[in-house]
Amino acid sequence: MPQMAPINWLSLFIMFSIILLLFNMMNYYSFSPKLPDSNNINSINFKSLNWKW
């Protein structure tokens, strides 16, 4: 019963929160985005950037 052991529920919540934070930090810092090449920046088609109002 949860009324009998509130400390156990609190420790489970804290452990789950720490694991969630560690998992998110590992995923955030392990992601390395590809930097755009300078050749691709100059080859942008400007006709596709015009909005059709």
Rank of each mutant, 00 (worst) to 15 (best):
P33F: 05
S17T: 13
L22G: 13
P33S: 12
N8H: 12
W9T: 09
I7L: 12
N27L: 14
I18C: 03
Y28E: 06
N42M: 07
W51C: 04
I41S: 05
I19W: 02
N50T: 09
M15D: 00
I44Q: 10
S32A: 08
S30M: 07
P36R: 08
Y28G: 03
Q3G: 15
N40G: 05
A5R: 15
Y28K: 11
L49W: 02
L22P: 01
W9S: 12
L35R: 11
M4T: 15
F31P: 00
F13G: 13
M25I: 12
L10S: 08
Y29Q: 06
K34D: 13
N45G: 04
S43P: 00
S17R: 04
N45M: 02
I7E: 13
F31L: 08
L12M: 07
I19Q: 00
D37T: 14
L20I: 02
L12F: 05
N42L: 11
I41A: 13
S43F: 00
F31I: 04
F16C: 04
M25S: 10
F31K: 09
N24A: 11
L21Q: 09
I14A: 04
M4N: 15
F31Y: 15
W9F: 11
S11C: 05
S38E: 13
N27Q: 13
I19A: 10
W51N: 09
K34A: 14
S38T: 09
S30Q: 03
W53A: 06
I18E: 01
S11Y: 10
D37H: 07
N45Y: 02
F16M: 07
F46C: 00
M1L: 06
K47Y: 10
F46D: 01
M26G: 05
F46I: 07
I41M: 14
N45E: 08
P2W: 07
N8F: 15
L35M: 12
Q3W: 14
S17E: 06
Y29A: 03
L10G: 08
N42R: 10
S43W: 00
S48Y: 01
Q3Y: 15
M1D: 08
N42Q: 09
P6F: 07
W9E: 12
I14G: 00
M4K: 15
P6G: 04
K47M: 08
K34V: 14
